[in-house]
Design a protein around this nucleic acid. Structure first.
Lengths: 214, 214
DNA sequence: TAGATTGTTAATCGATTAACAATC
DNA sequence: TAGATTGTTAATCGATTAACAATC
């Protein structure tokens, strides 16, 4: 299905989606690569190349339909369906994620959280039960879970990642400070907050003067 | 000072730092680009090019000193000093960040949080006071703050970003779902969690089979 | 039709990989 | 010294930018 979208273009997708959503809200129905490029601080060429690689088409002389583009990118990113999500680790980050309404609005439905701490097990956070991490494997066998979020300390992360991978989870959103090796059919997206903070620190100390929306 | 480090290499820095830290903990004192490349799943060439661009040097015939490399990268990323940090938005994400011990350990010291919600203002979260967002400007004028974290909803984010920028903050760690334009001397690092989740969603729907540590 | 803007090819730029002489 | 591995140059690969003919 997906042709040959270069990976930098993939990284830019959510940003396109965001700008198109805003334009749509503002009632803008048509936009040219030039206008969009001014808003997004990229070149018109890049926008046309990106959209082309996605299979999105505009109209010569007029530009692109905002609505259509928005919906095409939505489908390409798989945001037109529902995902069942569980969170491993009910600490601060896990709790913040489960409470963030935005995710639910976009089709990511939190089904359960898991933790090893007996004081936390049994709690209900924002409508989601915290279960015993020892029961994760059984839970996965009897529930259809798409995404597992790793939001736990390094020490247990690898073990829990393996349980997820070996029990049918299709994607892992990794907040733990490790790299994860997966079999061919499980995908991983890293959200390494510490790494991000370090990059900020780098920029602070090396008068980094470059826009980088990655 | 900093020569010409290509930006993909900069993005890889925290990952080098992490692996070198682990090697150091394991008591490994010397490593070749080949060995490191096997651990990190990159090419030896890339490692040598990256280290070279950083000004790090090894020893022909033997490899690199783990300890030395670790410390050099630490300095390059500015992790050998302290940063005063405030968080704008004392909601779930803000609270999670302020409670995350790892950041404090690496020299990022949280001085205050700010919010607009009267129910939250006055609280003390993990030893950090939640102040009134209206007082942010005054606070910045009388305190020396390096980093402002934007962890608040879109609607107020731009306004608060401007206050930070116009009152001497040097860097912004942006969790809000907007892009920020800064003057030349203020740097921004985005931590757009929603974008990250969307990339996971994309990978799930396009059997993305590529390791991407960005 | 004339003007505008795409789709697409070609040119440039930059990053990654390969190769190997230098040297520890 | 011989073996290993760097530092560095050259080759390749891929992404971005520029240009322009096609066409709405």
């Amino acid at each position: 299905m997906s042709k040959n979208i270069p990976s930098p273009a993939i990284r830019r997708l959510p940003r396109y989606y965001r700008y198109l959503g805003e334009l749509s809200e503002q009632g803008v129905s048509r936009i040219s690569s030039k206008e969009l490029s001014e808003k997004m601080k990229v070149t018109p060429s890049q926008i046309r190349q990106d959209l082309n690689s996605l299979g999105c088409i505009g109209q010569q002389g007029f530009g692109y339909s905002v609505e259509q583009l928005y919906n095409e990118i939505k489908v390409i990113m798989g945001l037109d369906r529902q995902y069942n999500v569980i969170i491993i680790g009910a600490g601060n980050i896990g709790q913040a994620l489960v409470s963030y309404q935005n995710f639910a609005n976009r089709g990511f439905s939190f089904k359960a959280m898991f933790d090893v701490n007996p004081k936390i097990i049994g709690l209900n956070i924002h409508g989601v039960d915290v279960l015993d991490a020892d029961d994760l494997e059984d839970y996965l066998k009897s529930n259809n879970i798409d995404i597992g979020v790793l939001a736990l300390p390094k020490s247990n992360a690898k073990k829990m990642a393996d349980v997820l991978i070996n029990n049918g989870v299709k994607g892992i959103w990794n907040f733990s400070h490790i790299d994860i090796e997966t079999k061919n059919d499980v995908v991983v997206e890293n959200a390494h907050l510490t790494d991000s903070l370090m990059r900020l620190s780098y920029k602070l100390n090396n008068d980094f003067n470059m826009m980088d929306f990655s």
